[in-house]
Design a protein around this nucleic acid. Structure first.
Lengths: 340, 340
DNA sequence: TTGAAAGCGCTACCAA
DNA sequence: TTGGTAGCGCTTTCAA
């Protein structure tokens, strides 16, 4: 059995309370002399408090819930979106003395289940929809950092009505706008859009990028064309329409790599024929042949910032700014060329 | 506040004990009539028990600790080794009703800290060294599934002395042997070995592969040559020695991709000149140009099996076989060609 | 079949 | 500055 506070108190010849005060660094409530004795014993047994007991009585569980939203029952960890955020969180979580419990959330019920079970000090929610945001906002009172969660404007406009809700987003609209503008600068006029299927009518990462793409075209007196909007299952169609566009804006590096691979297989890939720009800058992007021109979205940093935010709120009782907007940066490599 | 067992008991007009019995499916101790009443109330409030309280009194926390060993303070989540196992675990963890707490372990102290803090029902330990295995074996009595943990033979030879310790490993020796043999069959005689730095004298994944590589050479009357053993920082040297070998066995797909990229940059990559085979079959391997010939190690499946094992042990009280040996499978793509 | 009560390890409150 | 005690929500004897 592990050492308990009781045994330590006994050995030190003091009360439980005194030991507890030492542990919780309420130094001013304990004499220096006793503190030293107690700390020696704590060290001797390498004692650390039972988190369950602690969490039961108060709310300091040191537990952070990492909630991934996915509409499929499976989380795709090969997606850097998922994995890099986790890496960022892990980097901070230990130094801040927290524990991270991962949970894949599909529905409202999952949220309730996980949060009733354990006392969380905070949550990091990734990729939530508007609907799920409303749910969790209702159900949970501890602080929540939302990453890559695009909501209806009314939420951001009245952010003060949502205390303890924090948002770390990339400005996806802006990122897509920049990427599309870059293509246009390079002389491209017929620019296709390739993404995973998405819901055009609800706020979301891809929807924002789609909007940014359309805006950039518009500003440059180009009009977007329905028949140049593709998704993952349209590779064949994209091949047959290859004369209709000179460049493609792809919503993820991995998808771009798949597309390039597909074209190569078909014997129809020439950088001169089709310029490609995508998003993420995953580490494989630089190794691709040719290396991908892409918009870097620093997901690792999002994870780090999210955890840092939580640590500040919980430990320092700060109340940081609720919205953190990040910007993608254009990484010029070799998949985009001047169009003539 | 959440509903407690007490309130449910009150509303149902029964005692705490009775409610507890219903929750814990001790149906034989409760009358059918009361059971129904109680279950209705539970459903009404969507009640689920407080895990902290439960864990405090007994050991059923439903908590699984996922312990990653890395000798650096940072976990590299871009390594599929890390990420795919996690994916496999997540797939099973929810259906089995567990929660997964991730922890990056660098030293003995980390293990103790994490395990004293929470009551874990089991652990999944990834990539542990012999030394750390001894530590955790001492410190923990709950079941532990070790993934990719190569230990000294004496442990496996007396596996019965290590109850509740389970091992899921790829036969890395065999995998490397097969890969090297494949190269030899293709007419290669001068075969280089490229890996991350590793400790030759201690059991480990790369060490096993190195042994398999040497064995295959030996069996075929070829001898391994010190000057053909490289690591990540030797790319330049490998380039200058390019005439000394016609094939390379690389310990990971990602490293192989880096190497190929390096050669391409240097203007010295020709499939005809240097055959490359590696390990993992990450999803980028198939998209590489040329697609990687590799040994597929199904890491996702390891994660799934690990979690399944734990679920069987904990819930079904089975005592499964302690050692699960998996085998890599050769995926022939285009980086290995016949040598003349 | 049911319930009362003890206690898991800890913190918080109040009193000394 | 210290200690006694109640109680967090639950399970588990033991008795009825």
């Amino acid at each position: 059995m592990n050492v308990t506070i009781k045994q330590i108190a006994q050995e030190a010849g003091v009360s439980l309370t005194t030991v507890s005060n030492v542990i919780n660094h309420k130094a001013h409530r304990v004499s220096e002399e006793k503190r030293q004795i107690i700390e020696a014993i704590i060290k001797k047994y390498d004692y650390s408090p039972n988190m369950n007991a602690r969490a039961l009585v108060q709310s300091s569980s040191r537990l952070i819930g990492l909630l991934y939203f996915s509409d499929t029952p499976r989380l795709d960890f090969s997606d850097p979106f998922v994995t890099e955020i986790l890496e960022g969180i892990e980097r901070k979580t230990k130094e801040a003395g927290f524990f991270t419990l991962i949970h894949n959330v599909i529905s409202k019920h999952d949220i309730l289940a996980v949060q009733k079970n354990w006392k969380f000090e905070g949550f990091i929610a990734v990729g939530f929809s508007q609907e799920l945001f409303e749910e969790i906002n209702q159900a949970v009172q501890s602080p929540i950092v939302f990453i890559d969660t695009h909501l209806e404007a009314r939420v951001y406009d009245h952010i003060e009505d949502y205390p303890k809700r924090y948002f770390i987003n990339t400005d996806d609209f802006q990122a897509a706008y920049a990427a599309t503008s870059f293509l246009i600068e390079k002389g491209h006029q017929e620019i296709a859009f390739l993404s995973h299927v998405f819901d055009d009518s609800h706020p979301g990462v891809i929807q924002q990028r789609f909007l940014g793409y359309k805006k950039a075209l518009e500003i440059n007196q180009l009009s977007w064309q329905e028949h140049l909007i593709f998704n993952k299952s349209d590779f064949q169609e994209m091949l047959s329409k290859r004369k209709d566009y000179s460049a493609v804006l792809v919503s993820a590096d991995y998808l771009a790599m798949e597309f390039i691979y597909f074209l190569k297989q078909a014997g129809h890939y020439e950088v001169e024929d089709v310029s490609i720009i995508s998003f993420d800058d995953i580490k494989y992007a630089a190794l691709n042949d040719p290396p991908l021109t892409t918009i870097r979205l620093d997901q690792i940093s999002k994870g780090e910032q999210a955890m840092q935010l939580l640590a500040d709120i919980i430990d320092k009782e700060e109340d940081p700014q609720q919205i953190t907007q990040l910007y993608g940066s254009l990484i010029v490599r070799e998949t985009v060329v001047q169009h003539h």
